[in-house]
Nucleic acid binder design. Structure first.
Lengths: 125, 125
DNA sequence: GAGTCATATCGTAATATCTTAATATAACGT
DNA sequence: ACGTTATATTAAGATATTACGATATGACTC
């Protein structure tokens, strides 16, 4: 009937190199875990956190906490300061802004998890 | 020798409820994948993207693209507009700001992947 | 009605991540 | 020297995610 909307703008979008997103995806992976978000928020709020503190605050075994801290340290999200037998971790300055932006939107985020979102074109057989 | 730095501020950090971070972690999970970041960036740049366009731009099979689109749609990150046989996806307005903030930091992010970061206190046996 | 196109769902194999016990280490107090 | 404390590493099972072939649908064209 109409001449418009009969085709998508196929190939108008030029080839995208996925490797461009390697680093962001790594950072976001590190941040896509409840426990790690909790740790990183505490690190932001308190300036730095000690591994043993997070153990108490989160009620998780020591190895679990250390593993998460290590993961964030490995990709450079956290930096480490060792004093006596304690290990203090803080958010690496270069990521402070990103992290704080992310945490800010925590309150705003409302997941439409209850809203049924299945308008299947292809019905199951 | 010194009286300072002999203890961490144990238990000063009060108990943290991990469920608080359920929604953010879901959003971040949806964003922690190269392909999905590529799709969402294209959706931001072009206003909306058609599934078949992303297929061409990314050079990935149709099912792969659809699966990723569906995932982002399911958690509410993308909204869908169906015209004829085409399916256009765009970033849900409520997430536009967050997404654009995240994409902004893509350029800035430099992963210290090459820097050796193993200062193991506990050496392997 | 057969063929095509864009899209969606299912099933599954490969891969990655999470959690945690077992274990190790370094530094301290006794 | 032994016990304790804080932390780190390794290993392994459980669980989740990813990529994608096979397949189905709906709407068009011929």
């Amino acid at each position: 009937m109409s001449t418009e909307a009969k085709s998508c703008k196929i190939k108008e979008i030029r080839a995208i190199d996925l490797d461009r997103y390697e680093s962001v995806s790594k950072i976001l992976s590190a941040l896509s875990n409840k426990t790690r978000i909790a740790i990183i928020e505490a690190a932001m709020n308190y300036g730095e956190v000690c591994a043993c503190e997070m153990q108490h605050a989160l009620g998780l075994p020591q190895t679990t906490i250390t593993t998460h801290l290590r993961k964030m340290y490995d990709i450079g999200l956290l930096k480490q300061r060792e004093v006596w037998k304690y290990s203090y971790y803080s958010v690496n300055p270069e990521y402070e802004r990103l992290v704080s932006d992310l945490l800010d939107c925590n309150a705003n985020v409302i997941l439409p998890s209850d809203i049924p979102r299945s308008k299947n074109k292809a019905k199951r057989r």
